[in-house]
Amino acid sequence: MSYFDQELDATGLHCPLPILRAKKTLNSMESGQILYIIATDPGALKDFSAFSKQTGHALLESRELDGKCYFYLKKK
């Protein structure tokens, strides 16, 4: 994926801050828009998947590369 509407740099943040920052950013976005998130918390992979399942914001892509996690979330 490459297209996104907003970017959130959550590198260096630990649980639960990446999720809380993502939620806050999503609040300011429109339905259907895409949020791109970069995180370094190794727990973020599972947490964003769980966040997506529980909130209904679709996790379009989730991957880990060189100690960083990248996510594309589409606002419900």
Binding site: P16, L20, F51, T55
Partner: peptide, 11 residues
């Protein structure tokens, strides 16, 4: 506080 804030973020 971690659980409360996270639960709130989950709706």
């Amino acid at each position: 506080f971690i659980l409360a804030s996270t639960a709130a973020a989950l709706g």
